[in-house]
C-alpha cells in the first residue's frame, strides 16, 4: 500500500467517525471523492500552509458539492488546519462544523457551499481575479456529476474557456448516482465527456480511485484552456454494502451494518465512544 492509499484509508475512517458523531450526513458522496482530495492535499499538488490559511500564494480547493464536506473536514484536520477532535462536536450547538461547509468559520474552507451549482462560477471569479493580476495560483473545484444538472454549471462551462482560464481545474466526481437513483434513470448526462469537449475544455477522463492517474491529471495544464477531469468513481467507495447503492446517499447504518463498517474501515468501539 503506498502512502496516499494509507492516508485515504485513514481519511475514510475519519469521515465515518464524523458522520457517526453528527448522526447523519452524506458520507457516500465523501467516500466517492476521498482518493482525489487526498492526492490533491498530500500528493504535493495543492500549495497551502495549514498554519497560515490566508497565505496569498496558496492554491485553492473549492468544494462545490458541499454535501461531501466530511471528506474535506477530515483532510483539513489531517493537514493541520485544526484538530480532528474539534470536528467531532459537529452539528451540535457551538460547533463551526455542519452538514455543509462555511468559509470564514472553518480555516481552510474556501467557499460556503451546499446549494448546488454555485462553486464553478465562484471559482471562475477567483481564478480570473488572479489571472488579471498575473498571479500563479491554481484553482481546483470539485463538482458532482448530478450537480451538472444545474443550469448554472453550464453558464460557467461556457464562461471559463472564453476567459482562457488555464489556472482552473474542474474535477467531476462522476459516480453516476444522485440522491434518488442512477443519473441515467433520472436525467442522463450522455455523452458526458464529449459535452465538456464541445464546450471547449481540456478534458481528461480517469479512474478516480487510481492514485497515479489522479496525480497526473491534477498536474496537467493546457495554455489558455481550462481543464476538466472527469473522474470515474464509486459512490460509497470503501464500504462494501454502500458501494453504488443509491439509498446510501443520506443514511446511517443500523447495528448490524455498523459492525461491518467498523471491520472494513478498522474502527474501534472506543473511537466511536461506544461502551
Amino acid at each position: 500500500m503506498n502512502q496516499l492509499e494509507e492516508i485515504a484509508k485513514d481519511i475514510r475512517k475519519t469521515i465515518f467517525k464524523i458522520a457517526y458523531h453528527a448522526g447523519g450526513g452524506h458520507m457516500a458522496s465523501a467516500f466517492s471523492m476521498t482518493d482525489i482530495v487526498v492526492t490533491l492535499y498530500f500528493g504535493n499538488i495543492l500549495k497551502y500552509d495549514a498554519k497560515n490559511p490566508e497565505w496569498e500564494e496558496r492554491d485553492r480547493f473549492i468544494l462545490s458539492k458541499g454535501h461531501a464536506c466530511y471528506a474535506l473536514y477530515a483532510v483539513l484536520a489531517k493537514t493541520g488546519y485544526f484538530e480532528e477532535t474539534e470536528i467531532l462536536n459537529i452539528c451540535k450547538p457551538g460547533s463551526v462544523f455542519g452538514g455543509h461547509p462555511k468559509m470564514h468559520d472553518i480555516p481552510g474552507v474556501e467557499a460556503s457551499t451546499g446549494a448546488l451549482g454555485h462553486g464553478l462560477s465562484f471559482s471562475i471569479g477567483m481564478a480570473l481575479a488572479h489571472k488579471l493580476d498575473q498571479k500563479k495560483n491554481h484553482f481546483y473545484v470539485m463538482l458532482g456529476d448530478g450537480e451538472c444538472q444545474e443550469g448554472s454549471i453550464w453558464e460557467g462551462a461556457l464562461s471559463a474557456p472564453t476567459l482562457e482560464l488555464d489556472n482552473l481545474t474542474v474535477i467531476i466526481d462522476h459516480n453516476k448516482l444522485q440522491a434518488m437513483d442512477k443519473l441515467e434513470n433520472i436525467v442522463h448526462m450522455k455523452p458526458f465527456v464529449e459535452k465538456w469537449k464541445a464546450f471547449g475544455w481540456n478534458v481528461i477522463e480517469i479512474n478516480g480511485h487510481d492514485f497515479k492517474e489522479i496525480e497526473a491529471a491534477l498536474r496537467e495544464r493546457k495554455e489558455k484552456v481550462p481543464t476538466v477531469i472527469v473522474a470515474n468513481t464509486i459512490k460509497g467507495k470503501g464500504i462494501s454494502f454502500m458501494e453504488e447503492v443509491p439509498i446510501w446517499h443520506y443514511r446511517m447504518p443500523n447495528e448490524e451494518e455498523l459492525s461491518i463498517v467498523m471491520k472494513e474501515l478498522g474502527i474501534t468501539r472506543e473511537e466511536l465512544n461506544i461502551k
Partner: peptide, 16 residues
C-alpha cells in the same frame, strides 16, 4: 448569464 455573472463577481470580490 446572470447567475454566472454574480458568482464570478463574488469570486473576484473574494480576491480583492
Amino acid at each position: 448569464s446572470e447567475e454566472n455573472m454574480l458568482g464570478v463577481a463574488a469570486g473576484m470580490a473574494n480576491c480583492g
